[in-house]
Amino acid sequence: MSILVIADHDNSTLKSATLNVVAAANAIGGEIVVLVAGENCGAAAEAASKVAGVSKVLVADNAAYGHQLAENLSLLVADLGKGYSHILSSAGTTGKDFMPRVAALLDVAQISDIIRVESADTFVRPFYAGNAIATVKSSDAIKVITVRSTGFDAVSAEGGSAAVEAVAEVKDAGVSSFVKAEMAKSDRPELTSASIVISGGRGMQNGDNFKMLEAIADKLGAAVGASRAAVDAGFVPNDMQVGQTGKIVAPNLYIAVGISGAIQHLAGMSGSKVIVAINKDEEAPIFQVADYGLVADLFEAVPELEKAL
């Protein structure tokens, strides 16, 4: 068996989710080849070659792949992927965008968001907002899979010395182009890989009040997240949404502030090791999953918490 892992990267750095995907590939077993497709992505490719357990890195360095356009990337991956038993990527928004196209081009199913590998053809994935966990078996010759990072412990970013090989072919579907990006800038750790996450909900009342959570985040080295209600209300940007249809997080500590605990929110954070809830409504469903619940007005409790840390 040989497994093609599509790297998650921004041309200059390899995103940590790739390390979780390689871990999933290890669980399947077989030779692991990583594809880095991008533009001026030599640094990301070099980082990929050092990842433990990777035997080869393919680099497709071309303007056609610079912005990870799904139309172009999927043509490349479907073509290269023909020789592999499995094609894996992380279930981030890039993987979710291009991988189903790869599957359709190869006329195979995609298995989304796996959290466990049972065998080379059988995988475990949550559905119904995480309220049910399915074990699914694939009958396809090539398995196209997106991996939920929180399901697999990252392999080491160091220790490997894979050969790096250039891929000459350029696939440009010619139907899409990049227009612009407005990326959030933050010095805090990434939500999906942070070991502590503090999230705010509608109870925060406005975006300014999130500064209270940021102050705690800075003390704890935490990432800041939010509920859908907080994002919809415009308190914070969309990339902070945690939940069924946002980001999935599983930190050591998750602190939910002014969040009621709707099933769609729980779907994104109930895998956290320790959950703290601060809510003034003692009936709030979030308390059913919280290890430590504090029934309090957040406008008193949060500043007090910051001082106590």
């Binding site: 074990t135 699914v136 009958s139 309090a296």
Partner: peptide, 26 residues
Amino acid sequence: RLTTLKVEEPPKRAGGIKVGSVSELV
């Protein structure tokens, strides 16, 4: 192409406790 072999409940979280104050929480 996919056969569902089984569907299970997600693992239940062990029940937690309520704390009385911020200092107890910390």
